[in-house]
Design a protein around this nucleic acid. Structure first.
Lengths: 323, 323
DNA sequence: TTGAAAGCGCTACCAT
DNA sequence: ATGGTAGCGCTTTCAA
């Protein structure tokens, strides 16, 4: 079923069919109608490949995220989808299931299907570069060297400082943290925390390590409080872990925020749903996704990139109930 | 930058380049290496359009969902992505933002970009059919007539019956419902509820209507209890609304489940995070997504479709804490 | 207003 | 092992 079949049925040349289908002028009204009828009757649909080949205008972005079920990535994805739709671009979503092998597999297949790649990657830059063989990429929350790449940076030092200020102003002196250490070692968020604590002359030595899940956060709080029973507040790597901490606190009979104040990171909508509602160092997650798309567009067009300040998303303290 | 440039640079014909790039045999090792080097040097990437045109093998599915931020749809999407990945297919995700106009726009653009469409639609079938001009589609949670379409059905009568049984066995006699009425009128879930109540000889007249959001659920419970203060249990259209009800109950000083039992529908993972953990008539959401992809594949291949029973996902009662 | 011809970038098939 | 030729389905000149 090609354009030629339509042409034959309508008794015209295929160029005329093309004109009718693409709403070009230069065609007689009745001819056009006849062509359109024939096309409908035959159930004809233009091939996207043939069309893409000749009109170089469809843009498709690959969005790579580690886990779509994690609301943080979902929010970022939603922002990206919206920004892409505004430009008439298409987004193919790849979920790497938090696995580095799946990530390799994804990259393998992605290069032949999209014009640019955006998202969260675990591979080191050399391997990324190799797999991506020439496609522009926007790394979120991670620096880059490769000129063809770009980064969306998350600036949380100020927000975390606000969080610690907030706790300190309420008289908290013993504040712990639930970090999420990766292969790369301590997180940047932990560094922000340490700096903020030091600025208050406080010790930042009560730090536990949590698996990235609600249960992981709960388990980690158990351990941390066993070791440091005197803690009156905890800051966590992110909201998921914080929600686990909320659970554990309830289990331990520690009322939040009175017996234990909890502050998360990310500012997920989910945090408003739990009880007590989660106080968090909030990121504009949708903006992260939107920025990534915007920047991918610039890389693609070879335009001047956004200045560093604009490629940065700042986190700010969002006070709800848990602290 | 085409295959010809690479051929010229490597001093071979473009067919040889193609062989090298596609790992075909019939090529000398050193020649292959030379070609590969040239390609890398030039930063050459094959055009997906040209390739798709000649090898008719890449399959792309369009996944249409009303709101990616709604965890229900996210879970379905995750199931769909996983099933698609297993087949080597690509999924373009479209978020229609719960708007019928966006849905129209999406369909407009989708037909020229994907091989089949899967998801949740609000348009009536005639208009759907018109927009989709020939592409196969799998409608989730909704019946179809068009032969080119297919449906994934959600069977909840049994699960809802279990829910009501569960409540009745605990002595609940006054059970209300928070429905989510759409333009089409009362929901099927309400019918299931009514039938289950009647089977117990109970009245199903305490039914409120909730907007599809946490706050909507909270507001609806307020109203419902104001009108029917004697209710000791509520069943809700879905988990999102149930979580709102949980919030409202806390606000009203009604302990859950002792003063008010709450049962939702969907069985979202989110329900395990809130407190008390939500009892729900649970759907295997990932399976819904996976089935939709599977069925799309069959429509595409012209294979025999799955029998009706297999195109159906059954909901079962998942008892947690709220009832 | 219509049609013929060229060509988008690639792979498959048949020579050599 | 390599190259020539044809053709995938479409749009875009250019002529008529």
């Amino acid at each position: 079923m090609t354009i030629n079949d339509v042409a034959r049925t309508a008794g015209v040349s295929r160029q005329t069919v093309s004109r009718a289908l693409n709403d070009k002028g230069e065609i007689d009204g009745s001819t056009k109608q006849r062509v359109l009828d024939a096309a409908r009757e035959l159930g004809y649909r233009p091939s996207r490949f043939a069309r893409g080949l000749v009109r170089q205008d469809t843009t498709t972005i690959g969005l790579v995220i580690p886990d779509l079920l994690n609301p943080f990535f979902t929010e970022v994805a939603a922002g990206a989808l919206e920004a892409a739709r505004a430009r008439g671009w298409h987004v193919i979503v790849y979920d790497t299931a938090d696995s580095i092998d799946e990530e390799r597999g994804t990259l393998e297949v992605i290069v032949s299907q999209v014009d640019a790649v955006v998202g969260y990657f675990s591979l080191d830059e050399a391997e990324l570069d190799r797999h991506l063989s020439g496609i522009p990429a926007v790394l979120i929350g991670r620096e880059h060297r490769t000129p063809r790449f770009s980064s969306i940076r998350v600036e949380g030092a100020t927000g975390v400082r606000e969080a610690v200020d907030h706790l300190a102003s309420q008289g908290h002196l013993r504040i712990g943290m639930l970090d999420h250490a990766s292969r790369a070692g301590q997180s940047v968020r932990r560094k922000w925390f340490t700096d903020a604590m030091n600025a208050h002359g406080l010790n930042a030595d009560a730090v536990g390590n949590a698996v990235q899940s609600v249960d992981g956060g709960a388990a980690a709080l158990h351990e941390l409080l066993a070791e440091h029973p005197d803690l009156t507040a905890v800051f966590t790597f992110n909201d998921i872990i914080a929600i686990g901490a909320l659970k554990a606190a309830r289990w331990l009979g520690r009322a939040v925020p009175d017996d234990l104040a909890v502050i998360g990171f990310d500012g997920l909508q989910l945090g408003a749903v739990v009880h007590p509602a989660l106080t968090s160092v909030a990121l504009d997650t949708r903006r992260v996704g939107a920025l990534a798309i915007e920047q991918a567009g610039r890389l693609l067009a070879g335009e001047t990139q956004l200045p560093d300040e604009e490629l940065q998303v700042n986190a700010v303290l969002l006070v709800r109930e848990s602290a």
